[in-house]
């Protein structure tokens, strides 16, 4: 912290209760950095993994989790629901039908959240490179922090990537999730290219981006406007006598 930070120590305010002041932006960001650094450090030491077992690679996870390699000793533990998980581990090829579920699960997770693509299939399609039914690059649809190469990667590689992710979180570098808010239009464009212009999820990413102050130049665009159209279209089709219709209209105006 800078030299004069000591004189602005908020604890000193106790002696002068009449001088009520607010912290300026520089001071606040300094505190935020300290707290953020501390939080990152804690975060990196307690990670819960939602392993979305899409492909054959999932078979490497039981040995990774259980006694042979025991990933819990480094502070990584399995989790069964997306809302309580920090890491989304996509273990292998992702079919179009699966991708929809992956996106829904990802959007339900609470930030900060991290995605690891496990196996060649998530990187470039792997041995399903010419299959009509599987996607080729996971990071086109959801932001991915790390990939593990290999078909399939051994538990040692999985642990190595967890340790690398912990290093990244500790250093405040695992920020791919922010990219989903900042460039939502880009990700949505790729999703819509596969699922059609009607594609939408229950989570309002643009509203979340606004709420958390993560709006970027790429958050909205031609593709998120399609979402708005769809919402209007759906609102028009709520029956007249449906009790919530009035509420929706009220909040609209």
């Amino acid at each position: 912290m800078s030299e004069n930070a000591g004189s602005r120590n908020p604890l000193q305010l106790r002696d002068q209760p009449e001088t009520c002041r607010t912290a300026d932006a520089e001071e606040r960001s300094a505190w935020q950095r300290v707290i953020g650094r501390f939080a990152d450090n804690c975060r990196a030491r307690s990670l819960f993994v939602l392993h979305y077992c899409t492909g054959c690679g999932a078979i490497e996870l039981p040995p990774t989790i259980t006694s042979r390699f025991d990933m819990e000793r480094v502070g990584v533990s399995p989790m069964v629901t997306p809302r309580q998980a920090d890491i989304l581990l996509i273990t292998g090829y992702v079919a179009l039908k699966t991708l929809k579920r992956v996106i829904l699960s990802y959007e339900q997770m609470q930030a900060p959240k991290y995605v690891i693509g496990f196996g060649s299939c998530t990187i470039n399609g792997g041995m399903y490179w010419n299959s009509y039914a599987t996607i080729k690059q996971l990071d086109q649809y959801i932001p991915t922090d790390l990939f593990i190469a290999g078909c399939m990667p051994r538990p040692e590689a999985v642990q190595e990537v967890f340790l690398e992710l912990m290093r990244m979180i500790d250093a405040g570098k695992a920020n791919a999730w922010r990219d989903y808010y900042r460039n939502y239009d880009h990700y949505l464009a790729n999703q819509q290219a596969l699922f059609g212009p009607q594609w939408h999820t229950p989570t309002d990413i643009v509203a979340e981006a606004k709420h958390y102050g993560l709006m970027g130049p790429g958050t909205t665009g031609p593709h998120t406007r399609l979402l708005d159209q769809h919402a209007e279209w759906a609102l028009d089709r709520i029956p007249e006598d449906y009790p919530e219709r009035g509420e929706n209209e009220r909040s609209e105006r």
Binding site: L96, K97, N130, Y132, I135, Q137
Partner: peptide
């Protein structure tokens, strides 16, 4: 194949490689 709009994919006449090239 819930999001499928192409021809039936197991037909021999369906060119998987061309489809992949243009979709992904």
């Amino acid at each position: 194949l819930t999001s499928w709009h192409g021809p039936p994919p197991m037909l021999k006449s369906f060119d998987t490689r061309a489809y992949v090239d243009e979709t992904y």
